[in-house]
Every structure is written in C-alpha cells, then in structure tokens.
Design a protein around this nucleic acid. Structure first.
Lengths: 128, 128
DNA sequence: GACATATATGCGCAAACGTGCATATAGTTG
DNA sequence: CAACTATATGCACGTTTGCGCATATATGTC
C-alpha cells in the first residue's frame, strides 16, 4: 500500500542505492507543482479539456509570460501534454491522476472545514 | 468529479463569493505541505504508526528544531494528530487521504519513469 | 529547590520561487 | 520581405521558505 510507495518507486529507478533522497525529491517536486494557485487555476481550466495558451491566459487572468512558464513546468513534469497547431499551442491534462489528487485534497479539506466549524460551534454558543 | 472539486469546496465555506481564490490557496497550501522531502520523510516514518518526536528526529536525520517545526505545520493542517504523554509528544497521521495521495503520486511517477526509460531506449540519445 | 530530558520558538541567513517587464523565436498573412 | 499574432525566454526584484543556532518552555526526577 502507501507505506512502501517509495520502495516500489525505487525499484523502477536505475541505481537503487542513492535513490531514496532522489525519489523523495521527485515526489516533493510533483506536489510542489500543484502547490501554486495559478497552476491550480490552469489545471482547473484544463479540466474541461484541451485549450490554447491565450485562452488559459484569459481564463486565469495571469500574464502571458507567467502562464507560459507554468504550463511549460507542468508539461515538463508530464502532467500536461503539448500540441502545436499553427500559431497556437494547445495544452491538455496528460496525467489522469491529477483529477483524483484534487478530489482527495478537496474532500479532505471539506471534512476539515466541517470539523473546524463544528468545533467552533461547540466551544462558543454563537458563531464569529 | 474532479472538475468541480473547487465548487463543492466553496459550498462548505461561510462566504461563497470571495472563496475561489481562498479555496485555491487552501488547496495549494495542502499540496505545499507535501512538497518538502523532509516532511515526506516524516510522513513516511509515520506510515508505520504513531511515533514520538525524538524517534522521528533519529529516523529522518534532521535537526530536532526542524523536525518539530515540520510536525507542527502538518498538525496545524490537520494532517497529523498530536498527543502529549509525559515528556514526549506523539504524532500520528490523522488524515488518511495522505496514503492515497502518496500512492497516486508514486504510481504516476512510476509510469512516467517507465515511459521515459522506454523513450530512452528507442532513441540513442535523450533530452534533459 | 536543582537538574535533566523532550519539545517548541525567536532570530538571521541563504536558496528557491513566482512575477512583471522587455524581448526573442516561431508561424501566418499581406 | 514586412507586419502581425502566439508563445517562449532572459533578467531583475520582492517574497517566501527551509534551515541552523541558541534559547525558552514543559515535564519528570532527584
């Protein structure tokens, strides 16, 4: 199960000895890519399907340069796919695990919010 | 599904208007907590079960101060639980979604590594 | 009380990161 | 070829963040 996810990952890598740190770094980088609001915004926009950069710029409200950088980072990590068609470049979600990751995190956050709200109500008779 | 995970999250929050950014920030922070090798190391150590801080210091190889900070951050986010027993403080994984999150990320990384390895074998030279 | 152990915190520093600006590259159209 | 659009990149800046050091707090022991 999850307890040995790092182990299973190590088995797939070329030199199994030094890779504990390397595997951790890879996992950390993966999570780090999802740890930016702007990138999450872009991913959320791509949940609907493939989109060109200019559309993502409009939807996200970010600068073209920034959006381009973020998309490139996500694509290099294999999270997004990149397709060039004429002048435009279309990005799409290439890693379906992203959906489940977001679902898990959002579900967990919902539970935490509900718990905190209940704890709030129990301690003080009113709400803030 | 995942496409409207932000929406469902928004429904649970007190003021539904401004919360799109706030929800994104919460999700981003959640992922950011998992984006550090040291914190991943601590979580991995806690996969076996509840452990005191000093044990986690030994297992992770980090400084006591750092380990304490990381544990505190994870506990404040609700990912870890904190139990005080005498001089020692025991931390444990309180959010079971962490297991699935790690599984998903590790599985995705495995696939990517295999793909890259195959692409490496097909071409005589690869790109970085 | 003094002392020891376990954990948490204040402070400063160095590295990493996101962002904006200007500009470069690629491709289309006249 | 020139002009235009879409995307990518070099550079500098401000913020954030993880870390180490020393120290503070808490609890148990003598």
């Amino acid at each position: 199960m999850a307890a040995d996810c790092l182990m299973s990952l190590m088995g797939k890598l070329p030199s199994p000895r030094l890779l504990t740190e390397e595997a951790l770094g890879m996992i950390a980088r993966r999570f780090a890519l999802l740890a930016e609001p702007m990138r999450l915004r872009l991913l959320h926009a791509l949940f609907e399907g493939e989109k060109p950069v200019n559309a993502l710029v409009t939807l996200s409200g970010g600068t073209q340069a920034n959006v381009s950088r973020h998309l490139q980072a996500l694509a290099e990590a294999g999270i997004l796919s990149r397709r060039k068609e004429g002048l435009q470049v279309f990005y799409a979600i290439a890693d379906p695990s992203i959906f489940k990751l977001c679902d898990l995190v959002c579900g967990s956050l919902e539970q935490k919010l509900v718990r905190d709200a209940e704890a709030f109500g129990h301690r003080s008779s009113g709400q803030a």
